[in-house]
Design a binder for these strands. Structure first.
Lengths: 193, 193
DNA sequence: CGAAAATTTGACATGACTCAACTGGAGTGG
DNA sequence: CCACTCCAGTTGAGTCATGTCAAATTTTCG
């Protein structure tokens, strides 16, 4: 499907826009194609765009002081991704955003998005609802991280990301789950046996 | 300070409302006083209100299948708290909300809030921005949980909640940090020595 | 095909948990 | 106002989950 169509459909699930509004939205979002391993945002850069994944798969991650990578989540088609803190505060990003598979992303500059917010009440509402949904998802993830064992978290991950599990290398899943690749390997072999 | 004043001030940090809008907002929010240990919401109930803490301190937590309590965060004056998933989906709450100290909370019913959203564009914007900020805070917490040791997380907690640390019993801090009370006790005694 | 990257395996180390006993302070009722 | 109870916090011994490191194996991809 066309990237802009995917965007309108995503928005349409929450609010209704007039044709003129839809046109204004489409004009403000610009598509970017990413090849596997390409960066959309690197820690240290400024994040001046909101980003909608039309297709493909990206990861949002941070590298800690010890050099370990921690993946916050995998974004798929239909997800919005960003280092939101860096975007909101206009400070250098502390997270990076990188393509895991070839992807198409729609980006809107802060300037254009703020204009849309002023012109279209429903855009404020859409982003409110989207952010609320994202908040809920993150809260669930946090709770699971705190209350489940590594083995349970992996089982849960497989369920949750059933369709993408194949495309994501195992060491990234380990990073997402907060365990070492070795330990995840051990968990898997134990469960297969 | 008056609870409604605290609310208007909180909103005013993000958006401007006319006097009429401010009046409409104040009328829609109803204050509740809570004594220490009183529940504002219990798992299983429906959450039909958005809640603003005017003063005091509450905890948002979930009890897992094994009966262990996991505290997601401590809410203080100026925070908004809820089981957002339960609110948004109108399903029974899986989290509970309980006062740690005597508190005053302003509540608005879903019905009234939705009306405000329709009448006042800036209310959509305010909640968008508030939710974004909450999302960012939660993301930070998640990253810290994944990348820091229990000892580091405790040090970080003390810094972050400096003013409230005294009022929160240690076993709740342990629950927030995701460690057992015994282990937190060991960490503290090690650091004091 | 060959090199680099990802995964597996195993030995060992350690952080955090469990359980049980003990201490000390904050109510509470006689 | 004392004795008692209850709850939070501490301590320590033993255990378990997960991490570290190193090497072997498999897969990917130029």
């Amino acid at each position: 499907m066309d990237a802009h169509q995917a965007l309108l459909q995503n928005i349409g699930k929450y609010v209704s826009l007039t044709q003129a509004e839809q046109d204004a939205v489409c004009q403000a979002f610009h598509p970017t194609e990413l090849k596997k391993k390409e960066y959309l945002l690197e820690a240290g850069e400024y994040s001046n765009h909101m980003r909608f994944i039309a297709s493909g798969c990206l990861k949002l991650f941070r590298v800690d002081d010890a050099g370990n990578e921690h993946i916050l989540f995998f974004g798929m088609g239909g997800w919005w991704v960003n280092d939101l803190y860096a975007y909101l505060t206009e400070t250098p990003a502390t997270y990076s955003l990188q393509a895991i598979t070839n992807s198409v992303v729609l980006q809107i500059h802060r300037h254009d998005l703020d204009r849309l917010f002023d012109e279209i009440h429903m855009m404020d509402r859409f982003f409110r609802m989207k952010t609320q949904k994202g908040y809920v998802a993150l809260q669930e993830r946090t709770t699971r991280t705190m209350s489940l064992s590594a083995e349970q978290r992996y089982a849960d991950f497989v369920k949750r990301y059933r369709d993408m599990e194949q495309q994501i290398p195992q060491y990234m899943i380990a990073s997402y789950l907060g365990v070492t690749p070795e330990h995840l390997s051990a968990i898997r072999s134990k469960n297969t046996r």
